[in-house]
């Protein structure tokens, strides 16, 4: 059996609650500071510790990475693939350096593990793509980050 809650007369006469609700709506609509932004035109400034898209740092045009494989070792998402090789100016360098960003969980462990300050996570957070993208070395080596 349904037990009806007892309501007082003022409660049943709910015009007061409507006025109260309208007051909150009006206050926020007309006077409060906006929390959203006009995205493509306006952009937010993220903290330097933000973990966005990867890049490989280069010094004088040469990638810092020596293909030591510590980042694929530590990566919990197993999304980094490196193949090592040798060239005259560098004993060991990454011939291939691929990151499957869709798998990445942006934990930043790769950056932490890197002994060469090579792999970094930048502030870039716009990563929408229309098909599965594997970022290659050439793309990653550009100085894209802000750190």
């Amino acid at each position: 059996m349904l037990v009806k809650a007892k309501t007082s007369l003022t409660q049943r006469f709910y015009i007061f609650d409507i006025v109260k609700g309208l007051y909150i709506t009006m206050k926020n609509m007309l006077f409060a500071k906006k929390v959203t932004i006009q995205f493509p035109e306006e952009r937010r400034n993220y903290s330097n510790r933000y973990r966005g898209l990867h890049y490989i740092k280069a010094t004088n045009g040469v990638e810092n990475c020596t293909a030591c494989m510590l980042c694929p070792t530590v990566c919990p998402a197993e999304c980094i693939h490196i193949e090592a090789g040798e060239r005259p100016d560098k004993e060991k360098y990454p011939v291939k350096f691929e990151i499957d960003v869709l798998r990445c969980c942006f934990c930043g462990m790769c950056e932490e593990a890197c002994p060469k300050d090579a792999i970094k996570l930048s502030n870039i957070y716009e990563m929408t793509v229309t098909q599965r993208t594997i970022y290659e070395k050439d793309f990653l080596v550009e100085q894209r980050g802000s750190k």
């Binding site: 020596t66 030591c68 510590l70 004993e91 002994p115 060469k116």
Partner: peptide
């Protein structure tokens, strides 16, 4: 040399 050494 550990990062580039095969023995590592």
């Amino acid at each position: 040399d550990c990062p580039i050494c095969d023995k590592s």
